[in-house]
Design a protein around this nucleic acid. Structure first.
Lengths: 129, 129
DNA sequence: TTAACATATAAATAGTCATTAATATATTAA
DNA sequence: TTAATATATTAATGACTATTTATATGTTAA
C-alpha cells in the first residue's frame, strides 16, 4: 500500500495539540455544539472555533447547523481508539527511555503486542513498503 | 486508563513531519548509521542529525556508537505499524471529506473495523475516559 | 602528531502555529 | 425592525520549527 507521507504528517499535525486532543475526546461523547465544547473544555470560544476549523479542514470532524447552533461530530469515531493506542505507546516509550521507571507500571497488553496482533489479522497491511 | 494529553501531543509532533516519517520508515529496515540514512533519504546530513535528535528526545529511536559511526534504531518497531494504520485512516478521511471520491478506492479493511476489532481484543483499553 | 571521515552543533532565516482581544456575521426572538 | 445569542474571523503577538550554511567535535588511520 502506498504511503502518503505528506498526508500522514498533516493528520499527525492535527492531532499534535493538547487542546485539539481534548476537543476530540470531548466529541467522543457525541455530537456537540461549539458552546457546549467551550463549556466542557474550559477553552475560550475563539480558540475552540479555531481548532474546530483545523479539525474540519483535515476531515476529522463534520458540521451540521441546527438553528443558531453549529454541531460538530467526529467523522471517524475510531480515531479516538487510535489516540488511546498512542497513549499506550507513549507510556511504553517513556519507560524505555528512562531506566529508572518501575517495570510494574508496564501495561498488561503492550503496544507492540497489540499492533502485531492487529497487523497479523489484517495482514494485507503489515510489513509493506 | 489515564490519558497523557501533553505526551501524546508531543509524540504526534514528532511524527508530524514528512522527513521524520521517511527516516522512521528507513529505520524500519533495520539499524543504520547516520550517513546511511543520509544516503538513502537524500536529506542533508545536518538535517538528518537534527531530526534524529528530535526522535531520540521522544524515545522513538536509540543510539549506539560503533567506531566513528553512530547507529540509530527504532525503540519500538511496532510504531511503523501505527503509522501504516494512520496511512489507512488518512485515505478514508480524505474520501469522507470529498464527495467526488470514487468508492472503488475504499480499502478492503477499513480503519474503523481494524480499530474496533483490536479494541475488542484488548477490551481493557477500549472506551475508557 | 596530522589527515580524513562521521556526526553534532550553532547561527541565521523564513515560515508556521497557538493564543488573545476585538470585531464581524448569522440566527432567533421579540 | 432591534436585541440577544451563537459562531466565525481578523489582527497582533510571541513561540516554536524546518532548513541551510558554516563550523565544531569525535574517531580512526597513518
Amino acid at each position: 500500500m502506498k504511503i502518503y507521507y505528506k498526508q500522514i504528517a498533516g493528520l499527525f499535525k492535527s492531532l499534535a495539540d493538547e487542546n485539539r486532543l481534548k476537543i476530540i475526546f470531548n466529541l467522543a461523547e457525541g455530537k456537540k455544539s461549539v458552546s457546549k465544547i467551550v463549556e466542557e473544555t474550559g477553552l475560550s470560544q475563539p480558540l475552540v472555533s479555531h481548532h474546530l476549523k483545523e479539525l474540519k479542514h483535515n476531515h476529522i470532524v463534520t458540521t451540521e447547523r441546527e438553528g443558531s447552533f453549529v454541531f460538530y461530530q467526529l467523522t471517524e469515531p475510531a480515531i479516538v481508539a487510535l489516540i488511546n493506542l498512542t497513549n499506550q505507546l507513549v507510556v511504553e516509550l517513556s519507560e524505555k527511555g528512562n531506566i529508572f521507571s518501575p517495570p510494574a507500571s508496564s501495561p498488561e497488553f503492550p503496544f507492540s503486542a497489540m499492533m502485531e496482533k492487529m497487523m497479523g489479522i489484517f495482514s494485507n497491511l503489515a510489513g509493506e513498503k
